[in-house]
Amino acid sequence: MTTKNNETLITVQNLQKSFGEIDVLKGIDYEIKKGEVVVIIGPSGSGKSTFLRTLNMLETPTGGEVIFDGVNISDPKTNINKHREKMGMVFQQFNLFPHMTILKNMTIAPMKLLGKSKQEAEAAAMELLKKVGLADRADAYPSQLSGGQKQRVAIVRALAMNPEVMLFDEPTSALDPEMVGEVLSVMKELAASGMTMVIVTHEMGFAREVADRVIFIDEGIIMEEGTPKDIFENPKCDRLKDFLSKVL
């Protein structure tokens, strides 16, 4: 969609994750390049969310490696906190901090972790809030916002850390239908600005429109991968055909 170089940002090698006896990820290899928008689709329970969460080590992999910006972040000796600062994450349930105002939600991490002054952090936060049309809600608490507004705040809260990649874990699944659009349009703008994005979603229309590449995960492996055109118009494996026939 946008100009991009061929620099690899995230490399995933033979990634595995088991919860007790259950193998959720059974060896995933993938490369995400800078500026790319990768959409992950798949049936529920396929391991797509788990895959996304291993990218920033919210789930510790049981095997394989995740290389981010040239550093093996799956190595227990790596200080993961430093690298997470550069990996923004947006959750299905928003997870805004209910005891802080919107502005505080957005400034606490840049102030405490990046050493920004209050003025600096607040100015940057207000700038971001303006972009998503919520500048007038800066002093509100999360409970006073609608779902769509909360998710827009969650997106800009992550952006306030100036991340190199944004991870979205079903960002519109907990929203009322009429609020899905406002969140997707923020994500589209973000994609157009050249941000590297990895998105788990059920919004197939959005995937088709915004994705550079689409991954279909099922049974813990990447069953098929390609451009939106490949995936949606010429699906090869039966599982994907079956899945698409249910969701489209």
């Binding site: 919210l58 600062e85 994450m89 997870n95 005891h99 405490k112 972790l113």
Partner: peptide, 30 residues
């Protein structure tokens, strides 16, 4: 306190103690 709060703190780059101190404990206290 919902584990999502904890994960949101960690995903921003806070370590365990910072996440507890800034995010979990104030809510817990209430």
């Amino acid at each position: 306190i919902d584990n999502g709060q904890f994960e949101a703190g960690r995903s921003l780059g806070f370590n365990y103690v910072q996440t507890m101190w800034y995010i979990v404990i104030p809510q817990m206290f209430k």
